[in-house]
């Protein structure tokens, strides 16, 4: 059942991201793990493309524990925004550590640098995990401004964007405002499959 759900999510994400430039996945916290698994499957399947995975929710090290050696995903560069501020000082060549999730402009700089070095014939993808976590560390209006900038830049540079929103009860009004900026919204429900 779980693998069916993961496979279903993967297909849905892959189809949406190939049709739309920006996609937002809204999901309950209980399905977070499934979506992450589905996203890693997507990244492995589209291994000839360049992916940037921005994590504000879990430390990079946690993904290593979940999926093992991530050098199997050489097309993915991780930007970890929370390890340093949580006092985790590990290092990994596949991950760029940002001192604090408040340093949003630094995320922009790192994305620019990664894609500058990517081959022109590669499709480019950004995963933002997640808008909900960014709101914890920053003023919501700041996150809105950041997301607008990121989205505009992605549109002008032909980068596909996938942002995650973890839904706990009622959606925050600021997040509500943000998700409708995307071209496509996928709402994952318990009844999804």
């Amino acid at each position: 059942m779980v693998s069916t759900l993961v496979e279903g999510l993967k297909e849905r994400v892959l189809t949406s991201i190939s049709m739309y430039q920006s996609v937002c996945v809204v999901l309950p916290g209980t399905n977070y793990q499934d979506l992450i698994q589905a996203l890693f499957n997507c990244m492995r399947e589209k291994h000839t493309d360049q992916w940037v995975y921005i994590t504000v929710t879990r430390p990079f090290d946690n993904f290593v524990k979940m999926f093992g050696d991530l050098s199997r995903y050489p097309n993915v560069v991780f930007i970890d925004c929370i390890s340093r501020s949580s006092g985790i000082m590990k290092r990994d060549d596949q991950c760029i550590y940002i001192e604090s999730p408040t340093m949003l402009e630094r995320i922009t700089m790192e994305i620019k640098h990664i894609f500058r070095n990517a081959s022109e014939d590669m499709e480019k993808f950004i995963v933002l995990d997640s808008l909900t976590s960014l709101m914890i560390y920053n003023d919501p209006t700041l996150v809105i401004e950041f997301f607008y900038q990121l989205l505009n830049r992605a549109r002008s540079e032909d980068i596909h964007m996938l942002s995650l929103v973890v839904e706990e009860g009622e959606l925050d009004r600021h997040i509500n405002k943000l998700i409708y900026l995307n071209d496509k919204i996928i709402k994952v429900r318990d009844t999804f499959i």
């Binding site: 340093m103 949003l104 402009e105 630094r106 922009t108 700089m109 620019k112 640098h113 003023d139 209006t141 700041l142 809105i144 401004e145 950041f146 900038q149």
Partner: peptide
Amino acid sequence: YAMSITSRGIELAPLLKTR
């Protein structure tokens, strides 16, 4: 501009206006 100093040297990005 927000300025970052990394091993690549100085890099800039427009500073977000909201505090």
